[in-house]
Simulated scan of single mutants.
Amino acid sequence: MVNPMRGEVEITLDGVPHAARLTLGALAELETQLATGSLVEMAGRFETGRFSAADVIHVIVAGLRGGGWSGTRDDLLCTDVAGGAVAAAQAAAQLLAAAFVVPQ
Rank of each mutant, 00 (worst) to 15 (best):
H58V: 03
G49M: 13
L76Q: 03
M5R: 12
G67W: 01
A99W: 05
V81A: 12
E31Q: 15
L39C: 08
I11Q: 01
G71S: 04
V86H: 12
L77E: 14
V2F: 04
N3D: 15
A53E: 15
A19W: 01
L13D: 00
A53Q: 13
A91E: 09
E31G: 03
W69L: 06
L96A: 08
T36F: 05
E41N: 10
H18Y: 14
Q90N: 13
A88D: 06
F100I: 11
G37I: 09
G84M: 09
A89R: 02
E8I: 00
F51M: 04
G63Y: 10
E47Y: 06
G63M: 11
L34H: 06
M1T: 09
T79F: 07
A82N: 10
L27K: 11
F51I: 04
C78Y: 10
T48Q: 14
M1G: 13
A87I: 04
S52P: 01
A54E: 15
A89N: 03
R6A: 12
T72A: 01
A97W: 07
C78F: 10
I57P: 01
H58F: 11
I60V: 15
F100K: 09
G83W: 05
G71I: 01
H18G: 04
L96Y: 09
G25A: 14
I57C: 13
A89W: 04
T48F: 10
L13C: 02
G63C: 11
W69Q: 06
I60E: 12
H58I: 00
Q90S: 13
R21H: 12
L95C: 08
V2S: 11
L76I: 00
P4L: 00
L95T: 08
L27A: 07
G7F: 00
A87L: 07
R50K: 15
M1D: 10
R65Q: 15
M5T: 09
I11P: 01
A53R: 13
R50W: 09
V86W: 09
P17T: 05
L34G: 03
T32C: 10
L77T: 13
M1I: 03
M1W: 04
A99V: 03
A91G: 11
Q33D: 14
M1K: 08
T36Q: 13
R65P: 07
A82W: 02
L24Y: 08
V102M: 15
A19I: 06
A20C: 11
Q90L: 14
V102A: 15
R21D: 02
L13I: 07
D14I: 05
G83Y: 02
A62W: 05
L22E: 11
V2L: 04
H18Q: 12
L24P: 06
L30F: 02
V9D: 00
D14L: 07
H18A: 04
L77D: 12
V16M: 11
D80E: 15
G67C: 06
D55A: 03
A53C: 05
Q104R: 14
G68E: 03
G37H: 14
G67I: 05
V9Q: 09
V56D: 04
L22S: 08
T36P: 06
G44T: 10
G44D: 11
V81Y: 02
E31W: 02
E41H: 12
V86S: 12
V9A: 03
S52Q: 07
L27D: 07
G83T: 07
V16D: 09
D74A: 15
D75S: 06
G71V: 04
P4S: 03
A62R: 06
T36Y: 08
V86E: 14
